[in-house]
Amino acid sequence: MSGQVLEVDRLRMEFRAPRSSGGHRVQAVRDVSLEIGEGEILGLVGETGSGKTTVGKCVVRLLTPTAGRITFDGKEITAMAARALRPIRSQIQMVFQDPYSSLDPRMTVAQIVAEPLRAHGHPSREQVRVLVSRTVERVGLSAGVLERFPHELSGGQRQRVGLARALVLEPRLLIADEPVSALDVSVRAGILNLLADLQRSMGFSCLFITHDLSVAEFLCDRVAVMYLGEIVEVATRDELFDDARHPYTRSLLAAAPLADPVQQRSRTRSVLPGEPPSTTEPPPGCSLHPRCPLADDRCRQESPAATVVSRQGHLARCHRVEEQLSLEVSRP
C-alpha cells in the first residue's frame, strides 16, 4: 500500500541473553508487519513480554532490528546510519511510560522542550523561546512551569512536558509507549483527552503501545494485538472490540474487569489458563496452542498465517478463525 507513514515488514528482533543466564536467543519480535496511515492512531496491545515495546524501539531506531524492513514515509530506515538518520529523527518522536525517568532531572522544562529544536538547528534564541512556550501551552501547561525542574511537577504535568518535547518539532509520527499506565485515573483522563485533541489538531500519526484495552478502545483507530512476539490479530477499533476473532484477543477482552459490578459479575468468564511460555523457545505451531481451548493437531504443528476476516483489513492469525468461535473455557 502506498501513502503509509510507517510500514513495518516482517520485523524480527532477537536478543542474546547474557552468557551468565545461558546465552539463549530471545525472540522478542517475530515477523511483525504493520502499517500506519496518515493521521492514524494504531494501538499495539499486549501483555508483558509480548514484544510491543521492542517494536516501538525498533521503529525509533533505539534498536536495530535483526531482520525485516522499516519504511518511514517511503524511505527505508531499518539499518540507516546515525548521520543519515538524524534529519528523519525530527519526524519520529517518542513519549515514554515513566514520567519520572523520562525527563533529565537537572534541566528546566524550558530546556527540556527546547532540546529537540536545538538538536535540529533552530537558529534564533527568540524563535526557540516562542516555539517552546507555544508548545507548552498547547499541552495544557501554564507558562509558569517553564523555569521549573521536573521534580517540582506532578506526574501528569511531567507527562505533559514529555509530550511537549515530542511534539515541539511537529513530527509526522509519534510513538507513545504506555504513556498513561503510570498515572492515576483522574490524571490519565486528562492525558488521553489531550492526546486525542492534539492528534486532531496536529494530524500526526501515532503508534500507541499499551497493555490496557480500554485505553486503546478509547483512543485508537485500529488495534493490533501482540502475543509472544507476533501480531495475532489486527482490525479497526470497532471490529476488534465488537467482533474479535482470535482466541487470545477474546481472552484479553474477557479478562479485563469491567468497572460495573452488574456486568462484571454476570459475564461468562473465558480466561485462558496458564501463562505465556518463554520467548527463548516459543512453542512450535501456533504460539498460543498450549493455552488455547480450540487447539487441535494442526495448531500444534503448523504456524498459522494471517487470515483475512473482513474487507476492512481485519486479520487474525488463527487456523480455526473460519469456524464459528464459541470460546468456552472451562474454569480451571
Binding site: 519520529i92 538538536a119 535540529h120
Partner: peptide
C-alpha cells in the same frame, strides 16, 4: 528514558 529520549530526538552524542 531521558537519555533514550535525547537519542530518539536526534540530539548529537557530544551533547
Amino acid at each position: 528514558d531521558f537519555v533514550q529520549a535525547a537519542i530518539v530526538t536526534g540530539v548529537r552524542d557530544r551533547v
